[in-house]
């Protein structure tokens, strides 16, 4: 059996949910998923990055065989943020999450370039939330991906909803860009994958905003694991393992 990994699960207490690492483990078990990348809640992505990154790391350390820590840095923190990214990577973070909409910049803005440079050096794939108009469109991700060809980019949500038309063409234009389906909905995302082929996607649920089991169950109906196994884990594992074994 090939590994299955959920690329995006937010763990912690935010204004409208409280989802612990233990809750996530139960959700993974219910859905028959081996592992998950865990990510900070919105507040920790916008402010208090260091506190959030430490919380995520500690949560992952309690389930080292199941949970993989990410980190998030708000580019507005400048040099302090760059230091925090180095620190988080050294401590164990395996992926950088950027959320231009809530962090308050445009995805291709030079404000974030120093963070992308560090992520490329540290071999951390960069997950970017896309979709909010003006802040984070698929082609903005391509601007970054062309400029930083040694970094790997995950186009979270495929630009859903308004930019769904752009997602597949944008992703096809750059080798180092992968698409993630949460919020793009299985019945739409499946068409993207048909156009892109199984090597270009990584499965993510965005629990607890979405129900992890519903997302995995519905996706498996449309992209049967027998034909699309790499999408459900090995593609992401290959990106994460560039920094070292997992």
């Amino acid at each position: 059996m090939l590994v299955t990994i959920d690329c995006y699960c937010a763990v912690g207490n935010d204004r409208e949910y409280d989802f612990s690492a233990d809750d996530l483990i139960r959700a993974l078990d219910r859905a028959g998923v081996n592992r998950a990348v865990i990510t900070p809640v919105d507040r920790y992505m916008v402010v208090d990055n260091c506190e959030g990154n430490k919380f995520i790391l500690e949560s992952a350390q309690r389930h080292p065989d199941r949970l993989i820590p990410s980190c998030s840095i708000n580019p507005w923190f400048g040099k302090r943020g760059e230091q925090e990214l180095r620190r988080a990577a050294t401590e164990g973070a395996r992926l950088l999450v950027l959320h231009p909409f809530i962090q308050g910049y445009q995805a291709n803005d030079d404000l974030a370039w120093p963070l992308i440079e560090i992520a490329a050096e540290e071999r951390l794939p960069v997950y970017i939330h896309t979709g909010p108009p003006g802040n984070a469109s698929p082609w903005q991700v391509i601007d970054l991906a062309e400029q930083y060809p040694t970094a790997d980019f995950i186009m979270g949500h495929c630009g859903a909803t308004d930019f769904w038309n752009d997602a597949a063409l944008a992703a096809l234009s750059c080798e180092n860009v992968y698409v993630e389906p949460s919020l793009a909905r299985p019945f739409k995302f499946a068409a993207h994958m048909q156009a892109l082929g199984p090597a270009k996607g990584v499965m993510g649920s965005f629990a607890p905003i979405n129900d992890l089991a519903v997302e995995w169950t519905e996706m498996r109906k449309l992209l049967p694991p027998g034909d699309w196994s790499d999408f459900y884990g090995p593609n992401l594992l290959r990106l994460l393992a560039k920094r070292g074994p997992l």
Binding site: R185, K188, D211, A213
Partner: peptide, 15 residues
């Protein structure tokens, strides 16, 4: 032609 009813009913039922 995509069947979006099943997905959105699953989401609503799980809510």
């Amino acid at each position: 032609f995509a069947d979006s009813i099943g997905y959105w009913l699953s989401v609503f039922r799980a809510a």
